[in-house]
Amino acid sequence: MEFTVGQIAELLGGLVEGNAAGKIRELAKIEDAQEGSLAFLSNLKYEPFLYTTGATAVIVAKSLELKQPVTTALIRVDDPYLSFTVLLEKYEEALASLKTGVEQPCFIGENSTIGENHYRGAFSYIGQNCTLGHNVKIYPQAYIGDNVRIGDNTTIFAGAKIYGKTVIGNKCTVHAGAVIGSPGFGFAPQKDGTYRDIPQTGNVVLEDNVNIGANTTIDCATLGSTIIHEGTKIDNLVQIAHNVEVGKHTVIASQTGISGSSKIGNYCTIAGQVGIVGHISIADKTIVGAQSGVSKNVTKSGTIIQGSPAFDYKQNLRALAVFRKLPDLEKQLFELKEKK
């Protein structure tokens, strides 16, 4: 695929300084870009590369003042990082649109339907009574159980497993190795010390524009649904237990574990290696720092917490400052005792 600098500027609503007829064939980092490449400059730490880059064009902020002449064309926009993200999305969509058709062998069960312009990779499996929308991509060795519904423009990557009754919305992405809808961890303790399985009869619902990372697992509900609301992005290696509800446009980083029946609000940020106990609620726009353990409700919107157990971020920093001084404080205490 090849575009001119001017065409790209028009797509982004930007202004061109330099050769608008230059040909762009690829996207690249500003420090590595060569002729035919398009790069961007958002972090001013990389500004020196703007004057040495081999890129045909660079996306920069309208407000950027040049410190010396440049040889590359500039596309000036309000937000270079956002504009480059838009381009990456368009590029990915264009590549995905080229992937259509059915590879063999693959299987689709009775009473299942799939929309136009779909792709089914070799060894993929679709069960009975499934409904898949238009432009859906099912990559090799993906498994889709019975009675699953998947919306338009959704991609299920290689080796992902979608258990029966799962509902996935439009424009979702489920990356390789993810497991959606596996039974929740439900076992009833018996008087003799053994455990009895509790059937997990619910499902998982992923609303529109949800992204699930590689090897992430989301358990089905015991009753009802485990729900991931619209626009939420979940990293690789995350565990979400049965009957959890995650709000809209929340981001959850790798190795986080959320225990059963907890509710995470909208626009939250959950950093890496966070543990959240079951049956608690976390308010909208909460930020949970890395390696935190959340053991009680967070009721105030916009709260920032850190630590294990997690509490107010600033108080936690003060507590850590004191903690670092404990050896010296202990030494001073012993010295005082000896003086007595």
Rank of each mutant, 00 (worst) to 15 (best):
N297E: 07
E65L: 13
G54Y: 05
G177V: 02
N266I: 06
G193K: 06
V274S: 01
D78A: 14
E35G: 11
D235K: 00
Y139H: 09
A253L: 09
A319E: 11
S83G: 07
P189L: 10
I198C: 03
K45V: 11
N170Q: 13
D78C: 10
C130S: 04
S37W: 01
G13A: 08
A319I: 14
K191M: 14
I162H: 06
G13R: 11
A94E: 13
T303R: 08
N209A: 12
A188K: 09
G224K: 00
G133I: 06
I258A: 01
G14L: 02
D152L: 09
A271G: 02
Y267S: 05
P69D: 08
R149V: 14
A160R: 01
A319M: 15
G231T: 07
Q7E: 15
G13Y: 11
N203K: 14
F311Q: 03
P105R: 06
V77K: 01
C220H: 07
T269G: 11
I212V: 11
H175F: 13
A241D: 04
E65F: 07
L88S: 14
Q141W: 04
N297D: 15
N19G: 09
P199F: 01
D79K: 12
I280T: 01
T173S: 12
A33S: 10
Y195P: 02
V58Y: 01
T155F: 04
V5S: 10
P199E: 07
L333I: 15
G257D: 08
F323L: 15
A33W: 03
S262M: 08
G127Y: 03
K90Y: 12
T226Q: 00
I162Q: 06
V274I: 11
K314T: 13
L11M: 14
E335G: 15
I234C: 04
D219H: 09
N203E: 05
A310M: 11
F311C: 01
D284V: 00
Q306R: 12
N236S: 12
T194I: 08
F334Y: 15
T269P: 05
I264G: 07
Q315W: 10
N211F: 02
I138F: 01
P199W: 05
